[in-house]
Amino acid sequence: MSHLHGQDPRVVIARRCARELRAGEVVNLGIGIPTMTANYLPPGVQVIFHSENGCFGFGPKPGTLEADSDVSNASTEPVTLMPGAAIMDLTTSLGAMRNGYIATSVLGGLEVDQEGNLANWASKRNGKWWPGIGGAMDLCYGVPRIIAALQHTDKHGHSKVKKRTHLPLTGKGCVKVIVTDHAVFDVTPEGLVLREAYPGLTVENIRAVTEADFTVSPNFGPMDI
């Protein structure tokens, strides 16, 4: 039986990630769980969402008859433009990502490790690396604060928070915070520091499902969710 008592782990992760976003900052959300983060922003926290297809300041999904075929996010889901939105071309958008204009990015992951390495673009299928890179590597290179949002274990129960990643990397040492359905870790020069565990879980519970080494923060407490 899951420690989440039937809650969708992806929603737990997205809700917790939303609390990591800081008022006023420029944020890029990757596809999947990260995209869901936008739905759980705490009241009063305004951030500017960047989308790599060329926009600062996109907003919620429109109604069917309001959807504009030229206004969509990086996964080509229809979105709206907030007052003050700005459109840019692709090289500008990717240049902004490389050159530090995006403060925080929430990215999904296949594996993350205790040195902050993130792997999320390739696994081996039919002897080939699949599926591809997109904008994730540009984000890992240039965004100062990468939040890795991923389920703590794979479907076989193996830890996705590793001592060392094995898959091709998306970014080296880029992850600053790891948010899973079990825990929140900070990635520090001294290694992983456990900051929070899902309410009801102990440090020992987290150790039992985590391959990576970690220490426990003096401020350790239940997940702020």
Partner: peptide
């Protein structure tokens, strides 16, 4: 940059009908 945003490209790539020498970061 990406071989699987469409299932059609993904199928062609994984079945060996589509050649992809390398993927590039989007920027």
């Amino acid at each position: 940059t990406h071989g699987a945003t469409s299932n059609e490209a993904s199928d062609a790539y994984l079945s060996g009908k589509l050649k992809v020498r390398q993927f590039f970061p989007m920027g």
